[in-house]
């Protein structure tokens, strides 16, 4: 067998699957976004209309939900960075080797604990008679309850390891003599972190942010269970999937567009090549 035939034999089945099922479905989703729903029978008919897109743009609820989701995804990303950088510096530069090993396991372990389990855990923590209010109530602090704040906290809880692990790895790999040079030249710790550490770990932060951003963008289960009345893009898609599939299809292009825009703008920084 020549190499070309061998390659075809290897790729035939996977490509048939991925293109025939997955890419086909994505294309059909795009096509369905232009189809028509009969308002009386709610049967979907093939056709071509831009009405679904007009509805999405014209309906202020859809626009505000898109913006809210975008804001939540950005907030989760920023919060993850704010936790991961001090965590990484502490683990790499302050902790003893033993404590470092323990912390390395501790930050990856929750990744496995189950997505819904973690949402359930946050629900128990922040519910009205829950742990948070009961612990901090005597201090006069009342928790965020089920609100957009809790959604951001929960999504950060879910996706933090995707940011914390690459940031910690990047800080560990920084050559120690950089820190010596910086301090010999008279820089304090804060100045060293700002001017030496942060620029060098930027690729890791960007790599992590792709996960925290795109995973938050597509999520709606957190909003459903800890968000009170908070709606995200996914909530609208999910509530339309049976009643009005073309609207759901059209609206699912919004998160795709956000992710693509994010990836392109990140790519221009040159961080993707170094991932």
């Amino acid at each position: 067998m020549n190499r070309r035939a061998q390659l075809s034999a290897l790729l035939a089945l996977p490509m048939l699957w991925l293109i025939g099922i997955y890419i086909f479905s994505l294309v059909m989703l795009l096509v369905t976004a232009f189809w028509v729903t009969d308002p009386f029978t709610s049967k979907v008919k093939p056709g071509f209309t831009l009405r679904n897109f007009e509805q999405i743009i014209a309906n202020p609820a859809y626009a505000s939900t898109s913006l809210r989701t975008l804001g939540i995804a950005l907030a989760v990303t920023v919060l993850s960075i704010l936790i991961s950088v001090p965590l990484g510096i502490f683990m790499a530069k302050v902790a003893s080797p033993k404590l470092r090993a323990i912390l390395a396991v501790a930050i990856t372990l929750p990744l496995w604990a189950g997505y819904l389990v973690k949402i359930l855990a946050m629900r128990i923590t922040f519910t009205e008679e829950g742990f948070f209010n009961s612990m901090l109530g005597p201090l006069g602090i009342s928790g965020p309850g089920f609100s957009i704040v809790t959604v951001v906290l929960t999504l950060t809880y879910l996706w933090l390891p995707y940011m914390a692990v690459p940031v910690y790895t990047a800080i560990r790999q920084l050559p120690p003599n950089l820190f010596d040079a910086s301090s010999d030249l008279g820089a304090g710790a804060g100045f060293t972190i700002r001017t030496v550490v942060l620029p060098l770990i930027r690729p890791a932060i960007i790599a992590g942010s792709i996960f925290t951003f795109s995973l938050s963008l597509g999520d709606y289960i957190a909003a459903k269970f800890v968000g009170g009345s908070t709606q995200m893009i996914g909530s609208i898609i999910a509530s339309n999937i049976n009643l009005n599939p073309p609207i759901a299809a059209a609206f699912s292009l919004v998160p795709i567009a956000f992710v693509v825009i994010y990836l392109v703008s990140v790519q221009r920084t040159g961080a993707l090549e170094r991932m």
């Binding site: 099922i21 597509g218 998160p255």
Partner: peptide, 19 residues
């Protein structure tokens, strides 16, 4: 399939199965 939000994968396959 893992890079796109789960809801996109889910809705796309649901659409193929049902429509």
């Amino acid at each position: 399939p893992i890079a796109l939000p789960g809801i996109v994968t889910g809705v796309a396959l649901n659409n193929t199965y049902n429509q």
